[in-house]
Structures are given as structure tokens and as C-alpha cells.
Design a protein around this nucleic acid. Structure first.
Lengths: 170, 170
DNA sequence: GTGACGTTGTTGAAAGCTCAACAAACGGCT
DNA sequence: AGCCGTTTGTTGAGCTTTCAACAACGTCAC
């Protein structure tokens, strides 16, 4: 086994700052969303992705993949969201294994109500704290990490274009 | 209520890349740590902080603060870690409310065993994917976000210096 | 068609986190 | 001393995530 290359003082500081920043940021975002809209960020993302897709419906597996979620997690989440009436499940036409998750009108309303506060949080706690150059660099950094951690041929990479913009923004 | 400033296409792309990167990265780190050392990253951090402190012991409240954790979360975590024999709780000398969390030898051994694999993960999945300039920028970005989200007078900001380096590295 | 293998989605249990409520102890004030 | 507000740490319930197991279906070779 090769010798361990420990983090030097600078790297250590970067690493801890990164840990603190992401933790503080995502916790804050989650708290705000929970308080304002009664849902965790993970659920919000489900609604967003559905709202951007034709018919506001998507196959479970496709949805899981573009969210970077496990099938199990999505299954549980969709069950909860269905209880609240924010989406419903339907069978797929061609594949009898498949399930479609479809956003309901009620779910769309909940999304539209939640979106402004959420976008405001993202701006206030992230973008507004950075210079334009830092935003650009953050994107390159993020894309490098995603590229590294994404298995080849993963469709997630080409799913990043904005689709319809209906009631989302984040 | 002021008009919502939605994310434009560029911001949207940055935001989604950032989401994907942090999710992929932290999930991977957690999986590796769970597989190699049988603990989630949150627990690993507890052991690290204790190992860096004099006597390998810290007050619960201080520990919670420097970890950016709620007292409740820490309490549950410490209970679990105590069950495994990786730390123990002791009363504090001067304050009868206080509890000290103290790393055991067994806990130290577990930490030393886990550290190399963890540091390797941090390098492989983060630092090695970035140029030196990007690492520096990531630090500035992170520190800006931390500064923004940290209540004034929060001691966390001055807790970032490397203490002893004993068996940690991350 | 049959069989082997991969895919899809769900389920239940265990683990971790959040939140609100709480008891115990501290500190300052009168 | 007594009182009041604050701090400390814990607890239990509820919720989300993980993990392994599973049933149902599709696909491909034969």
C-alpha cells in the first residue's frame, strides 16, 4: 500500500472550509424550505424535475437518474408525495414494469408557491456572496467533480439544459 | 413582496452542477467510509475533533459547535459511538451540567485505521480533480459562504487552524 | 418457447437526523 | 436565600435515507 499523502495546512483549511460551507448552506436551505413550504429540498427537486418534463410526468428510473437518487429513496419519496396529493403514479404504456410519476395540479401549485422563496435562498446564501468570476469558477469546479464521479455513458451529464422553466428556477 | 429574480440559464447550470457535485462527492465519501471503517462521515468527524484536542476530550457543547452540529445530533451520535467503545462520557470538573466526550484508545485505533482511506478519497475525488488555482478559489468561495452564514461571534471561524495532526489529516 | 440474466420498482428494517419538550444546573438580581 | 431567565445535555417521536431482499417483467440466445 502506498504511503498516505496527508493534507498540508492549506489543504486542511480548504477542506474544512468546504465542509463547513456546504453543511451550513444546505442545512439553511433545507430549513427554509421546510418552514416555508413544508417539504425537504429532496422533495422539492422531485417536483421541479417533473414540472420541467412533457406532461409533467416521468418514469421512476429516469427521474431517479436525473436526480442522482437511488431507486429506493425515490420510491419512498414518491410515496410520501403521493400521500400529500402532490403527484400520482400511473402505469407506463409499453413496459408493464414501469411506473410514471405525474405531477398533480395541486403539486404544481405547491411548487409554484415554494419556488420564489427557494430561489431567493439560493441567491442570498450562495450567488450573492460570490463575484461573477467565482460563480464561473464554482461551475468549472463542480463540473470537474461531476465528470470524475459520473460513470461513463451516464445520461445525467446531458440533462442539464433548461427545459421549460415552468414555475421552477432552481 | 419584491419580484422574484429567477436564475438565468448560466446560473441554473452552475446551480445544478453544484448540486450534483456535492451530492455525488459526499455520497461517495460516505459510502467509502462506511465500507472501509463502518462509520458515517459525521461520526468520523467527531473522532477527528476529539483526537486533535488536549486529552482527546471535549465538552459536548464545544464539540457540537466546532462540528456545526446540533446538540441533539451530537448527543445521539455520541451515544452510538459510546456503544461501540470508541469514546466515553465523563462529568466535567467545574460545571455539573457539563459532559466531556473522551476518545478511547480503541476509538483512536479506529480513527487511525480509517484516516488513510478517507484522505485518499478526499484527494482522489476532490483535490486531484482541480488545479491549484481552483483549490485556492474553492477555499475563498467556501470561506465567503461560511462568513455569510455564521452568526457574529461564532467561535467556529477561529477553530480552523491545524491543532496536532495526530492520526487525522481530514 | 424456455431459460438465464438484466432491469424496474417496491418493501421492511435499521440507522441517522430533526424537532420540540424537558430536567438539571448555572448566573445574576433582589 | 429565593427567583427568573439562560445554558447544557438528553430524550422520544417522527421523518428520511440506506441497505438488502424481493417479485415482476423484459431481453436475448438457443
Amino acid at each position: 500500500m502506498p504511503e498516505t499523502r496527508w493534507l498540508d495546512a492549506d489543504e486542511q483549511r480548504t477542506w474544512r472550509a468546504f465542509l463547513a460551507a456546504t453543511r451550513l448552506f444546505f442545512e439553511r436551505l433545507d430549513q427554509e424550505l421546510q418552514a416555508d413550504a413544508g417539504m425537504p429540498h429532496a422533495y422539492y427537486e422531485v417536483l421541479v424535475r417533473l414540472s420541467e418534463h412533457p406532461d409533467r410526468a416521468m418514469r421512476m428510473s429516469e427521474l431517479a437518474e436525473c436526480l442522482g437518487s437511488s431507486r429506493s429513496r425515490l420510491s419512498h419519496a414518491v410515496a410520501r408525495l403521493e400521500e400529500r396529493g402532490w403527484l400520482r403514479r400511473r402505469a407506463t404504456p409499453a413496459d408493464r414494469r414501469g411506473q410514471l410519476a405525474e405531477l398533480t395540479d395541486q403539486g404544481y401549485v405547491a411548487l409554484v408557491a415554494a419556488a420564489p422563496g427557494h430561489v431567493k435562498g439560493v441567491r442570498t446564501h450562495l450567488f450573492d456572496q460570490l463575484s461573477p468570476g467565482q460563480v464561473a469558477e464554482l461551475r468549472r469546479i463542480s463540473e470537474a467533480v461531476v465528470e470524475h464521479l459520473t460513470p461513463d455513458g451516464d445520461p445525467r451529464r446531458s440533462e442539464t439544459r433548461p427545459e421549460s422553466r415552468a414555475g421552477s428556477g432552481a
